[in-house]
Amino acid sequence: MKPLTIVAVSAGLGVPSSTRLLADRLAEATRRRAADGPARPVEVRVIELRDLATDIAHNMVTGFPSPALGEAIEAVTAADGLIAVTPIFTASYSGLFKSFFDVIDHTALTGKPVLIAATGGTARHSLALEHALRPLFAYLRAVVVPTAVYAASEDWGTGGSGPGGALTERVERAAEELAGLMRGSASAPAAHGADDLDDVVPFAEQLAALRAG
């Protein structure tokens, strides 16, 4: 049986990185939730964009990905579920994060289940998930889970990330939503192609028929 695949993209710049830490927690929680369903293996991969920064910049200029970047793009586009995590800089996603998704074909994530998450210094940046990340993936026609996860510096204390803490609750809720979408999309039939649209009546013809009536 083909395993379910979860790919987490981390745009953290430091080592260690709170962005990578959040990506790992979300990926592990989603793996556990996805494994709770019908017996099926689950594979997890985390892609660190900092390791691909130069390749991404070259791709932006030349239009051609390096082998390493091409392989990362293929992993993202083939995944059953995507977790996208960025640090928040100047009230939005990082330039590295945006550039990576800019070099992916704008139709490649159509219908893909996506969990969005971010890290920042204070909770007041959390709205960037809704005014920046969610519209980005909506434009790419991905299916974004309802719960977005933001982790401020104070969330990494025992009150936020410990058992029963607020961050833990958000992580588990978002992971359950993503796992549910993954199970559904993996069992769904293939999307209809352009040939299936032959019977659709163009809007102009429908409008003309209404006027004639």
Rank of each mutant, 00 (worst) to 15 (best):
D102C: 03
E154C: 02
H58D: 12
A142D: 08
V44H: 03
D24I: 00
A79Y: 07
D51H: 13
G14C: 04
M182Y: 04
H125P: 09
N59C: 14
E205M: 00
L178W: 02
V103N: 00
E71T: 14
V44Q: 09
M60Y: 15
M60V: 15
T30E: 13
I116S: 14
G111Q: 06
S18T: 12
D55A: 15
E48R: 15
L129M: 10
P87A: 11
P3Q: 02
A68G: 03
L197K: 08
A132K: 04
L69D: 03
M182C: 03
I6A: 09
R31K: 14
I88Q: 07
G14F: 02
V145M: 04
N59M: 12
V15Q: 11
T86V: 07
E154K: 02
A117S: 04
T19W: 01
A138D: 09
Y139L: 07
R211N: 11
K2S: 15
L22S: 02
A123P: 05
S185D: 02
P135C: 06
F64Q: 13
F137L: 00
K2A: 15
A39F: 08
S185Q: 06
F101G: 13
S94E: 07
V76G: 00
A34M: 11
A128F: 03
E169V: 13
L13A: 13
E71P: 09
K98C: 08
I83S: 00
D196K: 05
G12Y: 02
E130D: 15
H58I: 01
F64R: 10
P189A: 15
H192K: 12
L207H: 03
L178M: 05
S17N: 07
A148V: 05
M60W: 14
L115Y: 02
P146H: 00
A204C: 01
A209D: 04
E176I: 01
T54Y: 05
V149M: 08
H192G: 15
I104P: 06
G180L: 05
V144I: 09
R31W: 07
T86Q: 09
T54G: 11
L49K: 06
G70V: 07
A78I: 05
I56T: 02
P67W: 02
A186T: 07
K2H: 11
D199W: 14
R31Q: 15
L96H: 01
G164P: 01
H106S: 11
A123F: 02
L129I: 08
G63L: 02
W156H: 11
E43S: 11
